[in-house]
């Protein structure tokens, strides 16, 4: 399949990349791994006349953890490198899980975590974990830098808060709260396929109670969403089977999936209940909280 013709604009610094994007706005796009962008271009769903390539910019593929500061992921860090990072695996197991079940090795070797977010897909595999962990996107543009929660990053399918000249220069994931536990659950036809529904849960224990909890759903609304009603059911409570079931049902009620070739909306709602129940239970267990009858 042919990629439609475009003008190739390699950048050697982020500032130059932003300037190129601004000069060729709104048609210019950033290419990093290209595993989403080139598919869209081959299908002519997107025919950008200009592509700004970041791969000649030095020092963008870092995955760095500093105690107290948290995790920093550069825009060229691939999903496979995040998956293989010992720091990620030890301190952000949820992120590791999300990376590990995303697509295939050849795709993960090119696809970047930042690109996965910037693609703006409602089913973005890395989004639920990043949102649950309270990650922020450090954004640079011709007019300067800004910072936004990944939770606020998505606007609609294929649409993010990024302006045409802006680039995500880094993702920052804060240190997880002491004793917290998180789990990412995904449902797809085959493991490598795009998620039909995804759910991440992060639990911060407070004594015997679930001090704080975040439940994030993907692929079941125009953007990844927080299942806030489900969180309210358990926040500050001693977790019980009844509350867990109620929280899962609330998550399902908050989802707004579509029917498409992969599955019906009804099926997805059911899957949300199942997945969020599993994710919450897993997160409670990881946070060493017992679910009482």
């Amino acid at each position: 399949m042919n990629v439609p013709a475009f003008e190739y604009l390699p950048a050697t610094s982020l500032a130059e990349a932003c300037a190129l994007l601004a000069a060729h706005a709104p048609g210019a796009r950033v290419i990093a791994g290209g595993t989403d962008l080139l598919v869209k271009m081959k299908h002519r769903r997107l025919v950008p006349p200009y592509l700004v390539d970041l791969k000649d910019v030095p020092g963008l593929d870092h995955i760095r953890h500093d105690t107290g500061d948290g995790l920093r992921i550069g825009p060229l860090a691939t999903i496979e490198s995040v998956k293989q990072s010992v720091d990620v695996r030890k301190r952000y197991p949820m992120l590791h899980q999300a990376a590990a079940c995303m697509a295939t090795v050849p795709i993960r070797n090119r696809a970047t975590v930042v690109g996965n977010i910037c693609n703006g897909s409602p089913s973005a595999e890395m989004a639920p974990a990043l949102i649950a962990l309270g990650a922020t996107a450090e954004i640079v543009g011709v007019d300067g830098a800004r910072s936004a929660l990944v939770e606020d990053f998505f606007v609609g399918p294929g649409c993010t808060i990024l302006r045409p000249d802006e680039i995500v220069a880094e993702l920052r994931v804060p240190e997880p709260s002491a004793g917290s536990g998180g789990i990412y659950e995904k449902y797809s036809l085959r493991r490598m396929d795009v998620a039909l529904a995804g759910a991440a849960a992060l639990v911060v224990p407070d004594g015997e109670t679930c001090g704080d909890i975040r439940v994030v759903l993907s692929a079941v609304a125009p953007t990844p969403i927080r299942a806030t009603a489900a969180e309210r059911v358990l926040r500050g409570q001693v977790p019980t089977e009844a509350l867990l079931a109620q929280a899962a049902a609330e998550a399902a009620a908050q989802s707004r999936p579509i029917s498409d070739i992969r599955g019906s909306a009804e099926m997805r709602v059911k899957k949300v209940e199942e997945l969020s129940g599993r994710a919450i239970r897993g997160a409670l267990k990881a946070a060493r909280l017992e679910v009482t009858r």
Binding site: M1, V3, Y8, P10, I31, G34, T35, L38, V39, K42, H43, D53, K55, E80, A103, T104, V105, P106, I107, N109, R110
Partner: peptide, 29 residues
């Protein structure tokens, strides 16, 4: 080039010691 969109694996080659889907890699890169 099987599916052309990185799903089938028949275009897999080793690039800098890592397997990649060569249908989704630009030659310039």
């Amino acid at each position: 080039e099987g599916c052309g969109v990185g799903e089938c694996g028949s275009c897999t080659v080793i690039m800098d010691k890592r397997a990649v889907a060569s249908c989704l890699v630009l030659a310039v890169d």
